[in-house]
Design a protein around this nucleic acid. Sequence first.
DNA 1: AGGCTAAATGTGACCGCTAACATGAACAGG
DNA 2: CCTGTTCATGTTAGCGGTCACATTTAGCCT
Lengths: 337, 337
Amino acid sequence: MPKQPNIYDVAVAAKVSHQTVSRVINHSPSIKPETKSRVLLAMETLGYRPNLAARALALSKTNMLGILTSDTDFTGPASMAHHMESAARAQGFFVVTCGIDPSDEKSVKDGIEHLMKLGIEGLAVIAPQLEAVEVIRKMVGSVPVVTLDSMYRMDELAVSVDNFSGGSAATQHLVDLGHRNIVHISGPKNWFESTARAAGYTATMLTAGLTPRVIEGDWELSTGHRIGLEVNLESKALSAFFIANDRMAIGFLHAMRQRGISVPGQVSVVGFDDLEESGYCWPPLTTLRQDFKELGNRAMSLLLDEILGKPGRKLDRLIPDLVIRDSTAAAAESTGQ
Amino acid sequence: MPKQPNIYDVAVAAKVSHQTVSRVINHSPSIKPETKSRVLLAMETLGYRPNLAARALALSKTNMLGILTSDTDFTGPASMAHHMESAARAQGFFVVTCGIDPSDEKSVKDGIEHLMKLGIEGLAVIAPQLEAVEVIRKMVGSVPVVTLDSMYRMDELAVSVDNFSGGSAATQHLVDLGHRNIVHISGPKNWFESTARAAGYTATMLTAGLTPRVIEGDWELSTGHRIGLEVNLESKALSAFFIANDRMAIGFLHAMRQRGISVPGQVSVVGFDDLEESGYCWPPLTTLRQDFKELGNRAMSLLLDEILGKPGRKLDRLIPDLVIRDSTAAAAESTGQ
DNA sequence: AGGCTAAATGTGACCGCTAACATGAACAGG
DNA sequence: CCTGTTCATGTTAGCGGTCACATTTAGCCT
């Protein structure tokens, strides 16, 4: 295969110096239109493509961004990553993704090391566990890092969903419907989203003079299902569940159907995320919508502003919307209908 | 910020020449252990990190791979991309993803151009539309391309699910249960997966002496739902649907519930994909499982073999598994129960 | 026409790394 | 003790761009 042409080849073909070619590439203003078109023609005929490695070397600027994403196929992270990539590309940046297992410190470190070798100029982290974030911030040196829906600190770039207010809204909705015994099925304790949602739940329960009760889950569909099968619904007029994500909620609803318990007749259920499926399950799930696209876009915008030295805010917070569907209804008086 | 150290800095610190440092980096055999550890120490204390742009320039080898993925947040593509990335990283390659809208030729071209500028050494395409693939193969020159579950040709790298046999198995399952009027709700015509599944369906229907009938869908949940609401179930003892993906099937099941039509009592439904939710919808969906992880791994393995010059096969095909759940049952005699 | 300024283009060095070749030290055999 | 090998290391050039600066050309005024 014949080697790729470089600026010198183009220069010869266009009868100009290599620097002139470089000027054309970089849209330098002081170049005669006539020369410019001659160079452009030469580039076209030779099939010239600038070598980004060479440019990166000369400028010490790689135009690369990294996305560190947790090791799952959940739609949330995938969607955020996807939209971040689009936003970055629009600004001429390349996005290198790197999947990690956030519970394994070695995996996290290897992932970062991998990205740092590349010379990334910014990093987005979609790994919403408390531990991982600290490790990451230490390793990247002066590379800006934006976290998505994760650690929440005033001094760092972060876009997050206001999980506290989401948890609170979910709970308040159930309280408003007259429910008294509301149980929260949470995510794992070491996820920031999880603790914030639980905190919103707890605060709202206490404010309403109710007793919070939390069952720890792990985001998994199968776990929601299992808890749904096991939970004791006889003892004390248990009438509502706020479940920390839709996947567990979908599993939970399935368990209710299997047990012949009517939702929302006997039990009301609120989820969190608003997956597409949530509107089509049985019954359609009341939930809190997270706008992953918006989250991804804002995160990338924060990161790019930081890289390009624009001032701007460092924190951004999205409020999830309560989407009321059929899985919640007013509580029956004292005992179930 | 102090500039990143380079090999010369390390060389000075270790009192060797820069080339010796380079040799240590590249694990050259002829280096005295004593010298090597001295260099290693110097690198450690200076916090040296090799500059990949410089290496790429010197070697004309970027170690970059591209993934072109269609513009959706479906779990299939996300999962495949994710597993391809892991496999590539294990071999020291970097993966740059690029989301495109495969129905928009400009978007496809821009995406490829973006990746080609980087100097990718291989490309994986997860954009299962007929048109896109041809455009892509033309643009990449001699860069190897692997397609996932897409165009299927004997002369190119490709991993695909045997959609024909999947469509056939789904249909045969319904035929075996005694259904006579089986309708297929397909994906869009310009997707290869779509036409292959439909072909499997049609062939099996004809073999069984039945009349195929296809309604064209578009993969969307909402479309499955809409078709489910609109479809005429009275006229001719319509008793079974083979739906080209689980998302549409989930929407369809929802419509059946809303219309009070019992599944599988009156109508049997088979999907395709085996999403996690499919096992937890109502009723749990009979479907064909696609192993996205395996698909991603095999695709990357094919691509890397090609890049690294190993011989090996060029085509790989996975057979989807029929997963029988509760949404299918034997047909009632003549008219519905 | 001469002289001055601005616009357009050319020249050389350098970014950090590796390949190819050159050199030096250590050691063997005669 | 000298030469021929081998091993370990050093030296130089070049990958394909960009920058800083040098040079040429063009435009304008007097």
